[in-house]
Simulated assay, not measured.
Amino acid sequence: MMAENNQPGRPIFPYQVKQIVTSRLILRPMCDEDIDYFHDIRTRPEVMKWTHKRKIDNDIQETKSWINRFLRPDRSNPPFHLSIIEKTTGHIIGMAGVYTLHPQAELGYMLHPDKWGVGYATEALTAFLQKWWELPRYNQDKASNIEDWLFADAHKENGVSLRLMEKLGFERYTVFVEDGDEIIGLRLRSSLY
């Protein structure tokens, strides 16, 4: 398993991003102090119905367990999960990150529903993807001819997320059923960035 993560073209971890700044947002590594903001987001059914979990966190301890996965990462769970902060308020409004490398790098994100529809997801993910493809990679010299992929998935009924992923350059490549829901698999080729 460890050898797979060291393939040419794979990002080298640990890699610490200080912050990414856009016109309206700051993306920075998650920290323990973010728990209350994420608990608010993760107790909203309209957010959680689109996640793999599909249900809200029952209590703050459950949210803490979730955030701890990103604060204390291992080789299969890279430390590249960022809180999204709205500049004007200083509040955390979501997260974006690659939450696993095995068997492939997979992107995930969530945003507070009060911030849906104003372009924050597009802005945050565009900046995140730019940084993702700039990460140092194993065997960089050998990787120049290797196409690296980043994967994501979305519920078939989540048209907004599907359109966002396609706007960012992701292409649909598979459909599968998970817990009775039809899921669209998407992938993004590194050469697009």
Rank of each mutant, 00 (worst) to 15 (best):
167 K>S: 04
174 T>K: 14
153 D>M: 02
181 D>E: 15
164 L>R: 03
152 A>P: 04
163 R>Q: 11
149 W>A: 03
179 D>M: 02
141 D>I: 06
178 E>F: 09
160 V>T: 11
166 E>A: 08
150 L>K: 04
150 L>M: 10
172 R>G: 02
161 S>R: 00
170 F>A: 00
144 S>E: 14
139 N>R: 11
161 S>K: 01
167 K>H: 10
154 A>G: 06
149 W>T: 11
144 S>W: 10
176 F>V: 11
141 D>A: 11
143 A>L: 10
154 A>E: 02
175 V>G: 02
158 N>P: 04
158 N>S: 04
165 M>A: 14
144 S>R: 15
148 D>P: 06
175 V>F: 07
146 I>R: 14
149 W>Q: 12
139 N>I: 03
165 M>W: 05
168 L>D: 05
167 K>C: 05
162 L>T: 09
179 D>S: 05
165 M>Y: 12
153 D>V: 01
155 H>W: 06
162 L>K: 08
170 F>R: 01
141 D>V: 09
153 D>F: 05
170 F>E: 04
173 Y>V: 05
169 G>F: 11
175 V>T: 12
140 Q>F: 11
148 D>I: 15
169 G>T: 11
139 N>Q: 15
151 F>N: 07
171 E>L: 11
178 E>Q: 08
157 E>R: 04
170 F>I: 02
156 K>C: 12
159 G>S: 05
159 G>M: 05
155 H>P: 02
162 L>C: 10
157 E>S: 08
185 G>D: 02
153 D>W: 03
184 I>L: 02
174 T>G: 12
154 A>D: 00
158 N>V: 05
159 G>H: 05
142 K>E: 15
147 E>G: 00
162 L>I: 13
146 I>V: 15
